[in-house]
Structure formats: structure tokens, C-alpha cells
Design a protein around this nucleic acid. Sequence first.
DNA 1: CATAATTAACTAACCAGTTAGTAAATTACC
DNA 2: GGTAATTTACTAACTGGTTAGTTAATTATG
Lengths: 248, 248
Amino acid sequence: MASRIKDSGERQGDSRSRILDAALREFSALGLAGARTDRIAERAGVNKALLYYYYGSKEKLYAAALELIATRIRDRSMAVLTSRATAGERLLRAALDHFDRILAQEDFQSLLQQEMMRLHRGEPGAMAVLVKNVFGPVQHMYESMVREGMETGELIEADWMQIHLSALGANVFYFLSAPVWRMVMSMDPLATEALAARRKALVEFLGQAVFRDRRRGAELAARVLADMPMPEVNRERLRMGRKDEREK
Amino acid sequence: MASRIKDSGERQGDSRSRILDAALREFSALGLAGARTDRIAERAGVNKALLYYYYGSKEKLYAAALELIATRIRDRSMAVLTSRATAGERLLRAALDHFDRILAQEDFQSLLQQEMMRLHRGEPGAMAVLVKNVFGPVQHMYESMVREGMETGELIEADWMQIHLSALGANVFYFLSAPVWRMVMSMDPLATEALAARRKALVEFLGQAVFRDRRRGAELAARVLADMPMPEVNRERLRMGRKDEREK
DNA sequence: CATAATTAACTAACCAGTTAGTAAATTACC
DNA sequence: GGTAATTTACTAACTGGTTAGTTAATTATG
């Protein structure tokens, strides 16, 4: 495609994908209902009718954006869960990767929250794509991983679901509540040091909690931490989504 | 209408408060943006203009609803935190009360989530009322409670914030993710038995984790559990907010 | 009768989706 | 190989439904 890029072909990054990209940002920031098709078109640098030409409706565009990011997340998660390491090490890596993912790339987390609220509201089809493409496969793989760890004697005998729940919950709630803590306390839970501390505590806690041999847990935790440095974060991005104080 | 009921005065719970009540339900289910003023008026049994007569604007009505529920929640939380019992026991009671509150009365949780997303979006004034009226005082009281427990030697030496974070996070994430788990697995985390089990595990875990004397922790956990039976829940309410399949 | 409570009817803005069209590229066909 | 038919990519301008908010008139009440 790319059509008539003859010599000065700089624009034209494929309208279709530019729309999807703009939609992803708009939807993750404002949600399905809050997103404005006009704004998506504007940010993609195309006419609004083109959204409809390619994607048919606002809802379908939303679905496309969701599917795009779902694929990305699933691939990344599955890669960690199936990497070449013992089950225990993979468990620690998965927890840390989850933390880092929320930290570096909040699109998914926002979209996920939106979908959860839609599900809670009983909107039909909510979460379906995510469950099928992400949570289903990932959870299944997580279960195998924990079972394997228990069989080899590396991990304690416990309900794999409780472990998964704790590991996810700790991360999700930390980031979810961080803006509130900052308002209540003087301390900033999203400052680099606070993040590093929390990240370390997460792995060390899991190392203590789920390994049969706690010394091995501690050792692995240290190794994994050393091996997976905390990603650089676009500082501004964490602070606040946007500060549209347009009118009023 | 309905107005001129003189002797058979059963309706007429004061339009003003009926509006606020309807608004609370509408806002907690759909959020500020999703709520419809027409629907609030209809459900309150008054003309829409009356909302504006009493509350001025949609936003001010939202603020009023938020303030109403904030007061309720603060009073309940503070009552538990300042009850006559040792710090450790109050800590366990507070955790259990938090669980039960989410279980029985999800208005606040929904509203809170909405506010958190508004804060995340950087909308001015988001969370302000809740922080000032609820989280500020409650967190302050929680800190004193944990400090007291550490001073008397009942609780382990630990960062009170980490304890509070864990206690809240476990509950919030459980209910937040429950609908998704139900979609992925065959098991229902909101079934009565699952809830009871989770509730028990919560207190027992805290009993083991934060008490210096674990036997005392276990004992207190058992006592608190026996003393605070799980509330009856309107079963339908948990399932799904609404199932509007109107058109289409 | 004055004022507080309440309403019916209206308006202005917004926004998802449509229409009717154009210019360029691709395919069909003699 | 040249041109007519068709398709692809794209736009400006409009439409119709929805919704927050208003106004002016009406009813109750102390």
C-alpha cells in the first residue's frame, strides 16, 4: 500500500494503523463512553468518516484497540511464563514483569479497569476478548507452572489461585491506590526510590512465602532482581493522565 | 404529582432527599459522565428542573451524593477503629469490616473507583472530598492504632502503611477481580461458601502475619470471626449491576 | 398574598454516524 | 498499450438523536 509516496513521502504512516493508535490512547485515557471519535480522527490526522470506513463503528474500533493490546500483553506474559527456568523462578519473574508492565505501559491497565467496570455494570461482551485472549491462556499457564513447582518440591503446597491472586493483587492495588496515598501522605509512592523498594519487597515477600526452602527463595529473589532491572519510566506519564483545564 | 397526599402521606419523603438518594444510585452505577439527569429525576419521582432548583448542577449533585456516602463510611470506619478493644483486635475488626462493607454496600466502592479514575485522568477536584472526609481521618487513626499495638508489644514492628496497604488491597482486589475469575474458571468467588472462606482466610492471615505472639493472633482471629458473622447479602445485587439489553 | 416548591416546555450544544462526493490507483478489455 | 470501468482512500458538510441546563408559568402553603 502506502500508495502515492513518490519522493516526499513522509506523511502517510498508513492511516488505518494511525487511527488504531490514536484510538488506543483515547480509549485507554477516557474509556469507551468518554472517548470522542472527533478527537481520535484529529489525533490520527484523518477525517472522522475514515474511522467508519475502516472500522464500522465506535464500538468496533474500541474492540480493535482492545484486541491489539491484548495480543501484546498475552505474548509478553506467555514469554515469561514459558521461559527456560525452574517454576519458582518463573513465578518470581512473572510477578516482577507484571509490576514493570503496569509501571511502563499503563494503557493496558486503564483499558482493563474500564472493561472491569463495564463487566460490573453487566454490559454484554465486556471483558470477553480479554478473557479469551489473555486471562484464559495466562491463567492456565500459571496453574501449570505452580503445579510443576509443587511437583518438583520447589514450591509449598498451596492453592495456586490464592498465590496468583496475591501476586496480582499486591501490584494492582499498589498502583491503583498510589495517587490517593500521595494525596493523603507527604510521601510519594510513585517516586523512583519508593517504586524500587516496593518492587524489591514484592519479590522478596514471594520468595519467603511460596518456596519450600526459604533460603532458595531468597537466593532466587536476589538473582531475579539483579537480572531484571527496573525499567526507565517516562516520569511525566505516571503523574497524571492529562490536565485539560480547557473551559472554566 | 402525588403531592397532595394529605392524610395518606406515605410518599413524600422530601423531594430533596429522594433526589439525593436516586442520584447516589445512578452515579454509583454509571459514574458522573454516564449518569443521566433525566433518569435521576424520574427515579426520584420529580421533574428534572427540581434537581437544578435544589442542587444547581449535575456536578454539584454528584458532589452532594459523594459527601453523603463519605460521611456514612467515615462514621462506620471510625467507630470500628476507636472501639473498646486492643489495637490488634481493632486491626482485625477493621479488616473484616472493610470486607463486609464492600460485600454489603457496593455504592461506595463503585463511587470510589470512579473517583480514582477521575483522579488518574487528572480531573481537578477528583477525590478531594473523599480524601478530606474519609481517607485522611481514617488513615491517621489507623496509624495511631498500629503504633499503639507496636508500643504495647502486641504487634510486630513493621511499617504501618504496608500493613494497611496489604489489608485493603487483599479485599479490594478480591472483589474487583471476582467477576473476571468467574468468567475464566468454573468456580464462583462470590458464592456464599467462597466468600466465607476468603473472609476467614483474610483474618487468619493477618492474625499470623502481624501479631508478635502468633498464638494470640490466631485466638483473636477466631474470636473476631465468631463475633462478626458474615452479613446476609442481597444475592442479586452482587451478580451484576444491571442487564439493560434494551435495543438490539 | 407572598414565597417556596414544582412543573411543562423549551433551547443550545454536543456528538455518533451518514451522505454525497473526489482523486488516484487498479483492473478489464479491445 | 491505451482507455473505460471499477475500486480504494479519503473528505466536507450535514443529520438526527441525546442531554445538561433554562425559563416562565402554576400550584401549594404559612
